[in-house]
């Protein structure tokens, strides 16, 4: 039954295509089950997130433009899973359509213009709606009944003012987790920054921030933290103090599990905080 499928261009980005490949795998399994057909951009490059926009904002627009032009020639809207990539690509897409200087400069460099109203989706703005449709709601095979978690969005909930017309992702992780049968806890720390790259350059600043986030998750009574960003996940795992920390999951990893994926044990090996004891104590089959 493929009547209802969604065709999208897919931008993997530097993290999901390399260091967080397990998230990319899980994401593909999930999209596959939900009839969301992804075709990766043929020759994508860094979206201009990371340090490029931090030191050369308009160069970052050109890097994003190169990706957007590829999606445009595929005639598809674009899907990404990284908060930073989504923001960069969306800002660039706006600017390439509305800012005359940017249009001219990027036509000069790349020989094209962005003419389509190309939507840049974040995976999480698609999933909740999809799971409400009957055939997809029924893809649940292995629930996570009674798993107590806190949703952690980090800067996924923040965006430049010009992107206000994009949907907020607030609540998207909760709907997916509710589908899995898990219980969300209120904690108020869902949008605290994970420290981003300062985790490398100034770990002394980031460690206390992450420790605070973990403390709040623990005192809320959570058994784990759910993220939708590979960098959030890494920072929470890497900079939290031993003995005072909870397993951190990617939302797609748990979704794939719920849909019956057998790859969880392999993905768990990439976690810096082992989630296996939690799965055992909750008696979730793995």
């Amino acid at each position: 039954m493929r009547m209802n499928s969604i065709d999208l261009a897919y931008y993997p980005g530097c993290t999901l295509s390399s260091t967080a490949r397990e998230i990319d795998e899980a994401l593909h399994q999930v999209c596959n089950r939900l009839d969301i057909n992804l075709s990766a951009l043929p020759d994508w490059n860094c979206c201009g997130s990371s340090s490029i926009h931090a030191v050369r904002p308009q160069l970052a627009v050109s890097l994003a433009a190169r990706n957007l032009f590829q999606a445009q020639s595929m005639g598809r809207d674009l899907m990404v899973m990284c908060a930073g990539c989504a923001n960069r690509l969306r800002v660039a897409s706006n600017q390439l359509r509305s800012d005359d200087t940017s249009r001219r400069v990027n036509r000069e460099i790349l020989g094209g213009t962005l003419d389509q109203d190309l939507r840049v989706h974040h995976l999480m703005d698609l999933l909740p709606g999809r799971l409400e449709e009957k055939p997809y709601r029924d893809t649940l095979q292995k629930p996570l009944t009674g798993l107590r978690y806190v949703p952690y969005y980090g800067c996924l909930l923040a965006a430049p003012p010009e992107l206000k017309n994009y949907p907020t992702l607030h609540g998207s992780m909760e709907s997916v987790m509710a589908w899995l049968g898990a219980d969300a806890l209120k904690w108020g720390y869902q949008a605290k920054c994970c420290g981003a790259f300062l985790s490398v350059a100034r770990p002394d600043i980031v460690a206390p921030m992450v420790t605070d986030i973990m403390d709040k998750a623990i005192s809320a009574g959570a058994e784990c933290v759910i993220t939708a960003c590979a960098m959030c996940q890494l920072n929470l795992e890497l900079r939290s103090p031993a003995g005072k920390r909870l397993p951190v999951f990617s939302i797609v990893e748990l979704m794939a599990y719920g849909m019956g994926s057998a790859d969880l044990p392999r993905w768990f090996k990439k976690h810096l905080i082992d989630p296996l004891p939690l799965f055992k104590s909750k008696q979730f089959a793995i």
């Binding site: 931090a54 980090g154 800067c155 965006a159 430049p160 010009e162 790259f197 300062l198």
Partner: peptide, 18 residues
């Protein structure tokens, strides 16, 4: 230099300054 571009500020500015 300390700013990581998280947009916490930008999304709250009453004058829509990024």
């Amino acid at each position: 230099w300390l700013c990581v571009g998280c947009h916490t500020c930008s999304s709250q500015c009453p004058n829509s300054i990024d």
